[in-house]
């Protein structure tokens, strides 16, 4: 790296390039973050002005005792557990089927990826029709008579199925990219060493693919923690029958937009942020160790 010494002049010069991004980021990300923390600690405030007159932990206390919040956390975790492992495994399976397919790989990839580019609201509305009790396609196909969208026992499953369908293409794409990164020669050597297809997958592909798996899992976890659009559209602006699909983000929306409980909403947002940080932190630690291990290996 040349002329590595920054000076006041170079800094001002760089700032001119950074200014547009920094101004908007400070205004709409940094400042709101601080404000959200402040609001979550506010026990008395004006909804419209955001003026806070008293501070305390009351909002977090209220969340702790709010059965709706418990339900929201529980649903979010259940939902994520329903979507993520299935989506990751299915995507891996499809990616392995697609990988080095002689013909039509591109065609299939295009099809699987369609839901990702489609408006969530639009696909949720379509699925709303598919899930109908009386003449729904889903019931028709599996010969059941479930009222998917009105039975609290099934409505979360309906949401899970929708999100699974929607997220698959994106994860397949990432897996394909990960598989492409693996040097063919490793597999060739393994084949020369007499490894069977299964052995090659388990001892060569899988270990080399692990970082991709982690990346996709973390990405999927974070995305699904924040599920909202699908809930809103599938249940027409409600949180499902008997709040059976009340998720964290929906809870936040409800508290803020419907009930004007800014403090509670901000506090629930911070809990969501905490979850995201926890997951990213764990993944970050793993990646740190993994890259260090790789470097050691290279030496």
């Amino acid at each position: 790296m040349l002329n590595p010494k920054p000076s006041l002049k170079t800094t001002l010069h760089a700032l001119a390039y950074l200014a547009p991004l920094l101004i908007i980021t400070v205004l709409f990300t940094v400042w709101p973050l601080l404000s959200a923390v402040r609001l979550s600690l506010a026990t008395r405030s004006n909804f419209y002005t955001g003026r806070v007159t008293a501070y305390g932990w009351a909002n977090f206390g209220a969340l702790w005792h709010d059965p709706d919040f418990h339900r929201a956390v529980q649903h979010t975790l259940l939902f994520t557990l329903g979507v993520v492992p299935a989506s990751v495994l299915l995507a891996l399976g499809v990616a392995l089927l697609l990988n080095r397919l002689p013909h039509c790989a591109r065609f299939f990839q295009t099809l699987y990826f369609l839901p990702f580019v489609t408006s969530t609201v639009a696909v949720s509305l379509v699925w709303g029709w598919l899930f109908q009790a009386d003449h729904g396609v889903v019931n028709g196909l599996i010969h059941t008579n479930i009222d998917w969208l009105n039975d609290p026992h099934y409505s979360l499953l309906a949401l899970i199925l929708l999100c699974l369908w929607q997220s698959l293409g994106f994860n397949i794409l990432l897996f394909l990219a990960g598989l492409n990164h693996i040097d063919d020669r490793y597999l060739l050597v393994a084949q020369l060493n007499g490894a069977t297809a299964w052995q090659r997958f388990w001892h060569v592909t899988w270990p080399l693919l692990t970082p991709t798996v982690i990346l996709i899992t973390v990405n999927a976890l974070i995305t699904n923690f924040k599920v909202f659009d699908q809930v809103y559209a599938l249940f027409h602006g409600s949180a499902g029958p008997a709040n059976a699909d009340l998720t964290l983000t929906y809870y936040l929306y409800q508290k803020f937009y419907i009930e004007n409980q800014t403090g509670l909403a901000a506090a629930s947002g911070l809990v969501l942020f905490g979850l995201v940080l926890l997951i990213t932190g764990l993944a970050g630690t793993y990646f740190h160790h993994w890259t260090r291990w790789l470097r050691k290996d290279a030496r």
């Binding site: 709409f28 990300t29 400042w31 709101p32 973050l33 404000s35 959200a36 609001l39 955001g50 974070i222 923690f225 924040k226 909202f228 983000t249 936040l252 929306y253 803020f256 800014t262 909403a265 901000a266 947002g269 911070l270 969501l272 942020f273 995201v276 940080l277 990213t280």
Partner: peptide, 10 residues
């Protein structure tokens, strides 16, 4: 890493 939903309110 900040979820956009948290920033929605402020």
């Amino acid at each position: 890493m900040i979820p956009g939903e948290l920033l929605l309110i402020p």
